[in-house]
Each structure stands twice: as structure tokens, then as C-alpha cells.
Design a protein around this nucleic acid. Structure first.
Lengths: 196, 196
DNA sequence: TTTTATTGATTGATGCGTCAATAAAAAATA
DNA sequence: TATTTTTTATTGACGCATCAATCAATAAAA
């Protein structure tokens, strides 16, 4: 009984299903049938809306990235000082919306897939650049540019590293601990060095 | 024309071929035929020696881990002070043998696979524990235990994070830069706090 | 003659992508 | 308004390719 205007609903459902399927399997080795089943439709419909599997995966990663970006922008809007901007970027990466097993597993899986797909690689590069730039938007108000660059690089690496170790269920046990660890690093690098 | 005593030779060749295949493809999505072909044998022979594909992959990861362990032990033997022990562990992770695209791609791919395979997960946990313990072997001589724990955790996360970002060909451009970044972190955390 | 090394051929399973068919809504036409 | 036509939504069934794993066969060494 076809209702009209189903396309956006199905697209959303399929992307959500893709995330949860990847999260459960822990890799991109999920079948179109599995994803479609979770979304409550046939695999043929998934192909109808997304063409090939790659495109569905790509759309899924883009969706995750877009969500992260929205959250980040909102958090940055609330930050009043450069120091708060840095903390805001870190906090978003470990917020309840982002730092959940499904999303972490997806990140990891997409990092691997990016080795094969240049489209996906480009997407993840954009994330890396944006993260760096967001961190710099706060750090340049506190440190000289060269120094800020290094701290941004280290902070980004810390975020990615803590994500991975979380995927292994090893290392830091929760988001709060992860944030404290990075904040501790930032404190030792930033205190007593405020620009005039 | 079967020569005897081929087993160890073939096993080694197949594991090396697996690493290079994974390194090139950037994921574990390599066929047994591809691997066997690189090793100069038939896929049937690969099955003959390793049984199933999982076992070959497992043996490959174990081999990579063993190599890392050997290198680390050698480096630690040369370290004279606690501070040098910490640097030694970091240096090995970014040595020419370890910080090459093939090995990095393999690490990343195996991290993902560990989500599915509990055997592999156990193996990677051992690595994580060992890394932590190796770092602690130096840090406990410099910092109080709780503090040492945090620094070890952060250092491990930094190493993993820099590995990932390297896989994306983004972030730090080379091993030297990566080492400097971590050493910079360690300096700010360790200087002026030597235990009596 | 038994063991070790080796492979070509085959099988069976899996999974992507296609296609024709069905049906409801919307648009066009009478 | 009643009808026909087109568009949108949806799926079951199927073809086709890929690959892991097996097996029987071959041949050199012990």
C-alpha cells in the first residue's frame, strides 16, 4: 500500500539501519539484506534508493559526519573564550551522541574502507581538516601558530586514539575519563602561556 | 618437484604475502588465491598449511606482534634510565620496521576484524596490555603510580591515534615528527617531577 | 611403500544487483 | 466528475560472479 513521499523516510531508515548493523557486526561486512531487513524493507528497495552498496555506505558516513558537524557548531556557539572553544570540540567528540559503540565501530570500519575508496578517503580527510581547524579556532587565541598547530595535531591524535582503544574495550573506561585525560594534556600545554 | 622441509619456508612466505597483500588492499578483504599467488604457491597449499583463512590471518597478526615485541625488548635492553625506557618504547613504535604503510594498514584492518573474532580481540588486548606495561616500566620510576598510569594511557592513545592518521595519509608526515610530538608531551609531563 | 609437497578441478555458499510484476496515488484527459 | 495514464513505491525471484574449502591425483623424497 504505497504511501507517497516515502523516499526521505526510507533513506533515513536505511542509513540508521546501516549504522546499527555496522555497530553490531563491528565492520562493514554487513549484507544489503541485513540492512534492509532492519529498516523493514526489501533489499531491492535499498538498491532502488541508493543504487549500489558503496553509495549507501558513503551516505551513511556522510550522515555521521554531518551530525558531528552540527553538534560541534552548536557547542562552539556557546563557547565564550578561546580556551572554551578547545574544550567544546573535545567534549563533543565524547558526547553521548558520538561516543557510543555503534558510532565508534562505524568510524573504525570506515577508516579501513577509506583505504580502498578514494571517495571515502576524501570524506574522512575533510573530517580531519575540520577537526584540526576547529581546534585551531581556539588554540590560535592562546598559543603562537606553530605551537597551536602541534597541540591541535596531538589533540586530534588523542581523540582518534581513545576512540580506537574504546572499540577494543580496552583503555579508558568511559567518556568522562577520556575527556579528563585530554583536558589534563591541554592544561599542561596551555596554562601560563596566555597571549598578551 | 617437492623438496622436503618446505613447511616453515612456505608458512613464512605465506605470512609475508598476507602482510603485503593486506598492505596493498588496505583491508583484510584479500583472497586466499591472491595471497597464495604472491607467495608463489597455489591456494590449496595455503589451506593445507593453515587450514582456514582465519587461521592464516591470526598467524599473521601474531607474527606482527611478535616482531614488535622482539624489537621492543631489544630497545629496552639498551635503555639505562627510566626516562630512556619510555622513549625506547615510543621509538620502536615508529621505527622503520613498524611504521611502514603495510604494517599500519594491517594494524588498522586487524583492529576492525577484532570486533568479530574473539581470538583476535584477545591478541590485540595482549598488545595493549604489553604496551601499557612497557611504558609503565619506565614511568613508575619517574611519577607516582596513579599519575604514571594516566601518562601511559595517554601515550598509548597518542601512538594509536598517530598510526590511524598516518593510514589516512593525513596528520603528521613522518615518523620523526610523530616521535617529536609524543616526546614533547612526555617532556611537559615529566620534567621537574623526578622522584627523590 | 609410506610420507611430504603440491595443484587443478570442483563444489557449495553467499551476496550483489537486476527485472518484471503489483498496487496505490496523482495527473491528465474526456 | 469519471476515466485513463503516468508516476511512485515495493518486492520476490533470479542470474551471475566471487571465493573459501575440499579432494583426488601426481610426484619426489625417505
Amino acid at each position: 500500500m504505497p504511501k507517497i513521499g516515502m523516499e526521505p523516510v526510507r533513506r533515513k531508515a536505511l542509513i540508521d539501519a546501516t549504522i546499527s548493523a555496522i555497530g553490531e557486526r563491528g565492520s562493514l561486512d554487513v549484507t544489503m539484506s541485513e540492512i534492509a531487513g532492519r529498516a523493514g524493507v526489501s533489499s531491492a528497495l535499498a538498491h532502488h534508493y541508493f543504487g549500489a552498496k558503496d553509495e549507501l555506505l558513503f551516505a551513511t558516513m556522510r550522515h555521521i559526519l554531518a551530525e558531528l558537524n552540527i553538534d560541534t557548531r552548536r557547542a562552539l556557539r556557546l563557547a565564550m573564550t578561546p580556551r572554551q572553544r578547545v574544550s567544546a570540540v573535545v567534549a563533543v567528540s565524547f558526547s553521548d551522541d558520538q561516543f557510543q559503540p555503534q558510532i565508534i565501530a562505524a568510524w573504525l570500519a570506515f577508516y579501513v574502507e577509506a583505504q580502498k575508496s578514494s571517495d571515502l578517503r576524501r570524506l574522512l580527510r575533510i573530517y580531519a581538516r575540520r577537526l584540526h581547524s576547529n581546534l585551531m579556532s581556539g588554540l590560535t587565541g592562546i598559543l603562537p601558530r606553530a605551537e597551536a598547530d602541534r597541540v591541535a595535531e596531538a589533540t586530534a591524535a588523542l581523540i582518534d586514539g581513545l576512540y580506537i582503544r574504546r572499540a577494543l574495550k580496552d583503555g579508558v573506561p568511559n567518556a568522562q575519563t577520556a575527556i579528563e585525560l585530554i583536558e589534563d594534556y591541554l592544561e599542561t600545554k596551555l596554562t601560563g602561556r596566555s597571549l598578551p
